[in-house]
């Protein structure tokens, strides 16, 4: 009997992992290709959620599902053009300060515009309900998040590893001077990378708005967990982030099963353990400027 319950927590943990993955993936992408540790990533996730809440009455949840990540991606274009571009080769401390400031400005702006109280938002009636597999229960909406996360990961992988666009970006991450010498300007590529990364944060915002409180600090709330996932996976590693998200979801679920007060602490313990055994994370690459 207990084994069944454990298995249920493990499977549920994988679903929760998808929720972490959506946020961590964009964070990892911007870091590994641009070298920027984006502390404002959570804030863009919050913007995605607020856009969904604001747009849904006009264009429905379906419309907001597409419009809101696109709008956040467009914000990403502006942010890259006016801020990030100046910091790719600078001391990482500078971009940390920049993105930290950006996160505070965005959070306070949301507070000023929408107020501090959470905004009401629900799962659309058509996507409500649960799926029962034997004795296991899965909310239909969580399965949808899982599916969207899988699709987003696959699309991102394809873009980075299987297209001409991705080849330039990866080459630029390793040796920007050589890419320049070949006559390719990296700037538009980086703009696109940041837009995709922040667009993913916006997508996470839309998807999670119906099942978590939509309030100004929601981004700060989720950011630490997303960083833990990126660090466990290994800075700059695509597959590492996926493995780490699944691992974090499962470890957290099992900890809550056995000892609930440590539910959130467990993911930090996991991070400490991974860093002790593998200082670069599960599948981390050696990155010159952070050694």
């Amino acid at each position: 009997m207990a084994v069944i319950f454990l298995l249920e927590q493990v499977l549920n943990g994988l679903l929760v992992g998808a929720y972490y993955l959506l946020i961590a993936l964009g964070l990892s992408l911007i870091f590994s290709l641009g070298g920027i540790v984006n502390l404002a990533h959570g804030a863009f996730y919050a913007v995605g959620a607020y856009l969904a809440v604001s747009l849904a009455p006009w264009i429905g949840f379906g419309g907001a599902f597409f419009a809101s990540p696109l709008l956040v991606a467009f914000l990403g274009v502006l942010v890259e053009r006016f801020f990030f571009r100046k910091f790719y080769r600078a001391d990482p401390i500078l971009s940390l300060l920049l993105t930290f400031g950006l996160a505070m400005i965005i959070e306070q702006s949301l507070r000023m515009i929408f107020g501090a109280a959470p905004l009401p938002f629900s799962i659309p009636p058509a996507l409500r309900g649960q799926v029962f597999l034997g004795d296991f229960i899965y909310p239909r909406y969580r399965l949808i998040i899982f599916g969207v996360a899988l699709a987003a990961v696959t699309a991102t992988w394809f873009l980075v590893y299987r297209t001409a666009f991705g080849r330039v970006v990866r080459a630029g991450a390793q040796n920007p001077d050589m890419v320049g010498a070949l006559g390719i300007s990296l700037q538009p590529y980086m703009t696109a990378v940041v837009a995709v990364g922040l667009g993913l944060a916006g997508l996470a915002g839309v998807l999670l708005a119906p099942i978590s409180g939509v309030h100004p600090a929601m981004g700060a709330e989720i950011l630490t967990a997303a960083f833990v996932v990126v660090v466990i996976g290994g800075l700059g590693s695509f597959w590492g982030v996926i493995a780490a998200a699944a691992l974090v979801g499962v470890v957290r679920g099992l900890t809550i099963y056995f000892f609930p007060p440590a539910g959130e602490a467990s993911i930090y313990l996991l991070m400490a353990l991974v860093l002790l055994l593998r200082p670069r994370g599960l599948l981390g690459e050696r990155i010159q400027k952070f050694e």
């Binding site: 409180g213 709330e221 630490t224 957290r252 679920g253 809550i256 099963y257 609930p260 539910g263 959130e264």
Partner: peptide, 10 residues
């Protein structure tokens, strides 16, 4: 700081 309650709900 818990935002996901699913393990508790199970």
């Amino acid at each position: 700081d818990a935002t996901d309650f699913s393990p508790y709900l199970l």
